[in-house]
Design a protein around this nucleic acid. Sequence first.
DNA 1: CTAATGTCCTGTACGC
DNA 2: TGCGTACAGGACATTA
Length: 321
Amino acid sequence: MPELPEVEVVRRGLVSWVRGRTIESVDVLDPRSIRRHALGTEDFIGNLQGATVTDVVRRGKFLWLPLADATPDAGPGETPRRPAVALMAHLGMSGQLLMQDPEVPDEKHLKVRFRLSARDGMPGELRFVDQRIFGGLFVTALVPTDDGGPGGLSESPVPLIAEEASHIARDPLDPAFPFELFYQRLRRRKTGLKRALLDQGLVSGIGNIYADEALWRAKLHYARPTDKLRRADAERLLASTREVMLDALAAGGTSFDSLYVNVNGASGYFDRSLNAYGREGQPCRRCAEAGIHATIRREQFMNRSSHTCPVCQPRPRNGRW
DNA sequence: CTAATGTCCTGTACGC
DNA sequence: TGCGTACAGGACATTA
């Protein structure tokens, strides 16, 4: 279940394999994986064939490969022949981007194959594998951004952002994350804290797992009203998301059922240090250390599971906080 | 405009 | 054993 740390692990893993290489051919084995490409399979392939990958860039959980035309650039002062575009990827629940030798048999859920120009010692194919098909690929325009580039943790940020990701907020690990703007928007909302954390337009990169982990770490309940949240609580919560994500990043991403693996196919192992998510019925570690017996509780919220400690994350009463 | 709900998907786990 | 059902959830469309 890739969230920001997993997507960033994929980005870092991918960049040295694909930068500077040309897409020679594309196989779309399941058109459902490119359903967000409105103009269809032929147009998708036509946009990619012959294009050269210049970078791998991330905003929130969106990942894109900016493309350059394979043909020589237009002369000075002339307009480029084609508008700037990128190959966009979202991993959804179970998406993987794998570098693979052509000899390796197709994965069971292989959806799209890219044959790349040969390079010594490097696998010849980039493969998009996705079991649950919540993820997908499409071609998007690159457009100017007024907030200093895509941000994220990209190595070479360019002043262009993928159009389909331009509504996505910066993430908590982004040095340019605008805390004041975030806090003001949070206060203007009338909803629960977790719902706001999962809104990628407010703060990006957080999914169900890290939302539960960050709320646990900050000792905040998911239903805390956002319109009354104190600045200190918001700051602590943001710091908690950063800590959880940095731990996961250091471990190479989280993995639960081996659906998620990084670009080279290796699973992460951060799941062993989760404190709330998936720990229903088990003791709250923080309370246990204080000599208090408390059991992690799982509740349905927003059609998904929320994990809290009833002792150190008390439910708000009448919204009076 | 905001907030909340429904939809897309497949594989696994589990009760009977 | 097989069958049905619940569950996992990111992003966006739809509804209120």
